[in-house]
Amino acid sequence: MELTTVWFALIAVLWAGYFLLEGFDFGVGILLPVLGRDNRERRLLINTIGPVWDGNEVWLLVAGGATFAAFPEWYATLFSGFYLPLLIILVALIVRGVAFEYRGKRDDERWRRRWDRCIFAGSLIPAVLWGVAFGNIIRGVRLDEHHEYAGTFFDLLNPYALAGGLTTLTLFVLHGAVFLALKTDGETRERAGALAARLAPAAIGVAGGFLAWTAIAHRDGVGLALFVAAAFCLGGAAVATRARREGWAFLATGATLVLAVFGLFVTLFPDVMPSTIAAANSLTVHNASSTPYTLKVMTWVAVCFTPIVLLYQGWTYWVFRKRLSVEKIPA
């Protein structure tokens, strides 16, 4: 396999990892006002992701860095082209990160309320916008002959991309609810599980619609197979949430996200950013990539260090594997 293909696949893995992990972080943040009725409950929800949210966010930074290193043209076009949406995402992620850490640092109800709103908005906005961004990448954008984005901000808000945004939003909220059912105990577990069971059919409708739209528009065999597998997992998640099999439900929503991301990347390949002006303007794994030498260096780094990262990040989840309940939240 060519190294450009390897790196395309690795970037798909990084995004899949990001959606799998920060996906439930976002879901927890969005569900904060829904499932957290008082301060103690809201603290319980936040503490389920407390030790891990920052490490989960690093998947995004590594995805960005890997794109810069392996496909500089893609990085340059994407980040300068999607300028305002990325600025909004940056602001959201900044405010959200600060909110997690600073919320409990003053014993003041108004202070906490304000940070709760930041956590909610800071989770909701990226959950939608990442889907919008991916929708636009798959659909193609106006790229001129220099591979520069020639469209406007409002061109990015087309129906297909918005459907993508709605898809990531519903999947992340479902994934978050399932995660909370798995990580909490008592009444919170009960309510999160019931909510997940109610959300699952909606997620099937929204995500199924978006993936079907994608499959019909692109007619990619392997992509279609992955979408079908994703849909199957999402159906499994619906059954598992109903049966309150929390571990299975979490595996199923996680697999749905990973398979959907893989399906989208397979559909995209060998383009990385198709142009809607002329096919010759499209960025592909070939014309956007770094030199074979750089890719070789980066491959060695990835091969040596990714397993170590996976091991210690996995260990963190093992250390904090116990369910939390409001009784365990110190006063």
Binding site: V58, V62, A69, P72, Y75, V297, V301, Q313
Partner: peptide
């Protein structure tokens, strides 16, 4: 990007995690 991206990506993978 062919040069400058590598240390940034490695920083993420080795250090930020």
């Amino acid at each position: 990007g062919d040069i400058f991206g590598a240390p940034l990506a490695i920083e993420g993978l080795l250090a930020f995690f």
